[in-house]
Amino acid sequence: MNIFRLAGDMTHLISVLVLLLKIYATKSCSGISLKTQELYAIVFVTRYLDLFTDFISLYNTVMKLVFIGSSLAIVWCMRYHRVVRRSYDRELDTFRYWILLGVSFILALVLHEKFTLQEVFWAFSIYLEAVAILPQLVLLQRSGNVDNLAGQYVFFLGAYRAFYILNWIYRYLTEQRFTRWISCVSGLVQTALYADFFYYYFISWKNNAKLQLPA
């Protein structure tokens, strides 16, 4: 464990807590893409298949349970909670995410470390996570004004993978045989997708103005 990875995991945890706070405090999920939440639930379920077979550390197991549990709880809330579901921007959240699922799965069948069920699903989850934010970014652009908590949620979600890139650089420099090209390349793509959001987020923060994404 290094400081970059710890910072990344904590930032990821904060993004989940911000989203849970928004949904429970405001009983609203306006500005949040259910499709992105469902993609993230798939990412965690397919990535943590080793949850019950390989024990790495208490921290690792607890965090996996937190991410799987929170993502499923958020999807459940946005679909079935009688108050929250009413504020879901159904007509704006129309990203055809089957394409993301299909492309990621085909890519995982072609590019993986070992051709085993666990490794193929792991690679699938890495590729899927890189593009899972797209429905959310599209929804933010369509909904124009971004409420603070939704903006902070996306900001922390983007920042966590940027910390992981620092972690991979650090591990590459300190551990002679560390190579994780799948994660690294996918993580770079993932963070790049946030680039324009970060830019507009910084502008709005600098001008102390509401976050406005260009349509």
């Binding site: 390989d54 790495i56 965090m63 991410f67 551990e175 560390f178």
Partner: peptide, 10 residues
Amino acid sequence: AKVDSAKDEL
């Protein structure tokens, strides 16, 4: 199963 060090990440 031996978890190679790279798989210890979340």
